[in-house]
Amino acid sequence: MKNSTSSTKELSAEEQEGLLTILEKRFEKNRKRHENLEWSKIETKLKSNPEKLWSLNEMERTGGEPDITGYDEKTSEYLFYDCSAESPKDRRSICYDFEGQESRKEHKPENNAVDMALSMGIELLTEEQYQELQQLGNFDAKTSSWIQTPAEIRKLGGALFADFRYDHVFVYHNGAQSYYAARGFRGVLKV
């Protein structure tokens, strides 16, 4: 999907239809992620939330392969997670947040995970959400993904990331200013 040039963060009718086709095919191909959900209800909700479609397009455009991973009964929202096998390719080589990015003396990356997610209209996965995602398959076997970091850790200069190695999910820490070619971030969008 291309990046919509509209400043209103809305897709054209053609872009919407193209994205909905991709999402429906992924939905059908990966039924185990959402066995009790119906595409027609999801599609109706998506069509009535054009700004959410724009965010899903951003997830898709940057390599996230968003798919529905559940439904929150309390909030009546569908949950879309980045379900690409590895951390989304166009969201790698970034620091955790702007403060970490700015603290680098040299070789500053162009962006950071927190600001990218915000600009896309999504949130970084929490540790709990990352664990839930790993129940649906093996993700980040060769890469890692920044995840939401508790304020008390971030205040001390750290940030959390996670990956899947040796048949286990690992959550680690690093300085928020660090960045690696194989580390990006995964997001969640609630619709």
Rank of each mutant, 00 (worst) to 15 (best):
D167G: 08
F139V: 10
A113V: 10
L136C: 07
Y166N: 15
S84M: 11
Y71T: 03
I94K: 03
N36L: 15
K41S: 14
P50W: 10
G158S: 12
Y179R: 03
K45S: 12
R154M: 00
T126Y: 07
D82Y: 12
S48L: 09
R61M: 08
Q177S: 14
R91D: 03
Q148R: 13
D115R: 04
P150N: 01
D115A: 12
S84C: 13
D67F: 01
H107F: 13
G63W: 03
A117Y: 10
K105W: 04
A113R: 08
K45G: 03
L136N: 11
L124Y: 11
R104I: 03
K47A: 10
N174V: 07
S87F: 03
S87M: 12
L136I: 07
A141W: 09
T149F: 00
G121K: 12
D140Y: 10
Q148T: 08
R154S: 14
S145Y: 04
S178P: 01
E132S: 12
P88K: 03
L125V: 08
I122P: 04
L136V: 06
E73N: 14
Q134W: 11
A182H: 13
A141I: 09
N57P: 07
A113W: 03
G64K: 14
E106Y: 13
K47N: 09
G100C: 05
N36R: 08
R61K: 15
A159Q: 00
K89N: 08
F164D: 11
S48A: 11
P66Y: 11
G70H: 12
H107G: 00
S84Y: 05
I94C: 14
D167E: 14
M120P: 01
E99K: 00
L56G: 08
S48C: 04
G157K: 00
E38G: 03
A85Y: 04
K41L: 15
S103H: 04
V169L: 12
F161E: 03
R61W: 14
P109E: 01
Y78S: 13
V169R: 06
M120E: 10
K52P: 02
A182Q: 12
D72E: 14
D115Q: 02
E127I: 10
I94F: 01
W146T: 05
K52Q: 11
Y180N: 06
L124S: 12
S178K: 06
E102M: 15
F98P: 00
I153R: 09
E102T: 12
I68D: 00
G100N: 02
I153N: 02
R154L: 13
A181F: 08
Y166K: 14
Y78E: 04
K105P: 01
Q134H: 10
F164P: 05
A113E: 04
S144Q: 07
Y96A: 00
